[in-house]
Write a protein that binds this DNA or RNA. Sequence first.
DNA 1: ATGGCTAGGCTCCCTAGA
Length: 259
Amino acid sequence: MKLATFNINGIKARIEALPRWLEAAKPDAVALQEIKSVDENFPRALFEDMGYHVETHGQKGFNGVAILSRLPLEDITRGLPGDDSDEQARWIEATVMGDRAVRLCGLYLPNGNPAPGPKYDYKLAWMARMKTRVEALLLTEEPLVICGDYNVIPQPEDAANPAAWVEDALYLPQTRAAYRRIVNLGLTDAFRVQNPGPGHYSFWDYQAGAWNRNNGIRIDHLLLSPQAADLLQTVQIDKDVRGEEKPSDHVPVWVDLAA
DNA sequence: ATGGCTAGGCTCCCTAGA
């Protein structure tokens, strides 16, 4: 079962690039972030015609997440529990029915800049809520893939120029500590299982020639429960997508599980 | 010295991103 995460930075803007990648990569399911669309305006027929089930959790203008799946989906839930006043669409879950059922969580973790400030407070509070949700999911002892745009640079080797990020909400010590608290519940960073060294990124800014200079950061992650980690076969960053026509500033990252 | 671009909406300037 091939499961991917891809921050597309707007479904309208990626109306050609996303199908192009789907045709080439053929994931069984992909968690999308920043669809920047309400549910009614998401071009679901385009993807249904390609054989995908489409489940969106959109909002106007910003944010918005979705799951596209060629395998059947069950028990779809939208929104991160823990704050009924939170209206930002950043979390979706579904069970992907392959040879084994895998619970897939797609997330778009808040950016948090500028820090300090209310946006950073929201980021940290959101991460605390996420930790509570992950604790509950782990109790099921089922294969669990928690993937998306984490907006967290976990370690210095996850940035081409870590010094440039020391005061940024993606890399502040409090951010990285909150991320570690989630990972330390017993999750595995799938990419790091097979790729220990520096120089692997999932985001390159549109500005300042970041892509041509390979000035990137690794912020799109797939975290696996123990039961999912036992099934891990392959993990890859589809870096080449960043150099294609009208790209997102993020690229897809995927795992292949024996499921 | 300024985020050197991109996307979307309250669109011809603003917010937001990372």
